[in-house]
Amino acid sequence: MDLSPFETDNSLSCRLTSEIPDVCRTEDCCLGIDEAGRGPVLGPMVYGICFCPVSKKQELKESKVADSKTLTEAERENLFQKLDEARSYVGWALQILSPNTISTSMLQRTKYNLNALSHDTAIGLVQYALDSGVQLKEVFVDTVGPAEKYEEKLSKLFPGIDVTVRPKADSLFPVVSAASICAKVARDRIVKGWAFTEDLGEVDTDYGSGYPNDPKTKAWLLKYLDPVFGYPQFVRFSWSTARTLMDSKGVTVHWEDDDEDGEKSAQRQNNKSMLAYFSAGGNEQKPAQQTHRFFSERRLKSLAAL
């Protein structure tokens, strides 16, 4: 697994892929989808797909892939090694959502929530497999949300493919376990080797698990809180843990779209400016004098005092 395409700019989202096994272009295939790092406040979220011919399901099972969460890091690395050795019939692809992508998407003017982000990412990966010529017949998806609606959505999007969405799919279907191992191995490696773009000197890498309730993670978040900038891009600013800490220990920052959607804010802005500019020049008593629109369009006004 070569992470360098992501590591050249770890603020962006990035796709990593294995070679497509030839047999996957000719034989009916099954595909599993799983994610790693949805909960942590640190590091990327990685979406993984793994696929192989339906006829090779048994072989995949025999390789003892299991839900990545029940495995140690060493076991996962070991299993990923095995998957790599099976590259003549097993393929995979990963979508790495950088923490910066997660923050800026979720905090966007037109909010883009994590569920929508997850679904779109999963769909994008399935589409990638199809576009690469993988003969998909079955898709297995692990989900945290309501399974039925998601299953219906995917079935509609990919007619002719048998879609199964299940909670805990990663322990039920070996091909999902395999996807989960790929995703988890990538996330672990990325977090371990995170190169901070910020100029922070030597950074303490004892982050713990990255989950908000891990004392080590909490301690790290306290240590690396900058009152003005908050955190390096390694941290997900949209997580309430990070936001609460910034609110209580950082400087308050106001945005024009705080607490309202973009449309509303633009309106308010304009109304406000209209009032402000008609009474410009420290001249509230004489609203008759209007500032010429050359100035109001340029947000220029006279001052009464420095």
């Binding site: 020049g281 420290g282 004489k286 004098q289 006279s302 009464a304 005092a305």
Partner: peptide, 12 residues
């Protein structure tokens, strides 16, 4: 601070 010729108010 001088008298603004258009508004008669104080301007800088």
């Amino acid at each position: 601070r001088l008298r603004n010729p258009a508004t008669d108010a104080t301007s800088l």
